[in-house]
């Protein structure tokens, strides 16, 4: 790691985001993430968790606030004209996997993986293919390299999507409810892959409704509601013994368990 230990990997300051004039979703969010941290974001439906991740991926404009990444300015909207500035170079070091399947259906698995490395970084096809094959083997998908997305199960598609993002060597991975569209028996295989990444200290921000997964992967949990951070702390605290009343209510209501 080139950064000093204390420097934050991500620093979100006073982030405001609305959709149109009436739907204010993020109302002044402040989050700091240290290198190697795995932050799980939980909160009520419609609370802006997906919006937060989409903003961090550079997919949405913001109203005001700023995000710094690895010490560099990444996203900001501070000038008078309210234009969202996104540093696309910095954006390249962030990877994201979505709730819905987003593989390119007209490309085979291996073509999905090598498209960005070849086109964005100009990597040679042979070397990208070699790396892709190795990654697929690691995720138990070695035999599926030449299959098309339509021939894969939901769990396989999500594992391919994770592999595709990893091909660009991201410094941060964003996961937005990547297992919630899956049949229950396929959830574990995807979570195993993410746990594998966690074991290698990949920094990640994860939105999930899966309590078991949250507890196992998080180094920190953030409870977001009403567009602000309500509680932020280690998993034992936020999931086990929340300090805030609203967190307590949410955990009781949604997860039914607390210990």
């Amino acid at each position: 790691m080139t950064m000093s230990f204390s420097a934050p990997l991500v620093k979100i300051q006073s982030l405001h985001k609305s959709y149109g004039p009436h739907i204010q979703v993020l109302k002044g969010l402040d989050i700091e993430m240290k290198p190697g941290e795995r932050v799980v974001v939980i909160g009520p439906s419609g609370g802006g968790k997906s919006t937060l991740l989409r903003v961090m991926m550079g997919l949405e404009k913001i109203d005001s606030g700023s995000i710094r990444f690895g010490g560099k300015p990444y996203i900001s909207s501070e000038s008078a004209d309210k234009k969202t500035e996104i540093d696309t170079e910095v954006r390249r070091s962030i990877g994201m996997v979505f709730q819905h399947y987003t593989l390119f259906p007209h490309l085979s698995v291996i073509q999905n993986l090598i498209l960005a490395p070849c086109k964005v970084r100009g990597e040679a096809k042979a070397s990208a293919t070699k790396r892709a094959q190795a990654l697929l083997e690691r995720f138990g998908l070695g035999a599926k390299a030449n299959a098309y997305p339509a021939q894969l199960s939901g769990g396989q598609k999500q594992r391919v999507a994770i592999a595709r993002a990893l091909m660009l060597d991201p410094k941060l991975m964003l996961f937005d409810e990547v297992t919630s569209a899956l049949d229950p028996e396929l959830v574990a295989e995807v979570e195993q892959v993410i746990l594998q990444l966690a074991a290698q200290d990949m920094p990640m921000m994860i939105v999930t409704h899966d309590m078991w997964f949250a507890k196992n992967i998080a180094s920190r949990v953030i409870f977001c509601a009403g567009g602000v951070v309500v509680e932020d702390g280690p998993p034992e605290q936020v999931l086990g013994a929340p300090k805030e009343e609203r967190t307590k209510d949410f955990i009781d209501r949604v997860f039914h368990i607390r210990h």
Binding site: R54, M57, G58, L59, T88, R91, R92, I94, G95, M96, F98, H100, Y101, T102, L103, F104, L115, A116, K119, V120, R164, A165, L168
Partner: peptide
């Protein structure tokens, strides 16, 4: 969502 994936992969507009 296909366009989201393109942006998340950093694909330039032409690609």
């Amino acid at each position: 969502e296909q366009l989201d994936a393109c942006v998340a992969l950093g694909l330039p507009r032409r690609v």
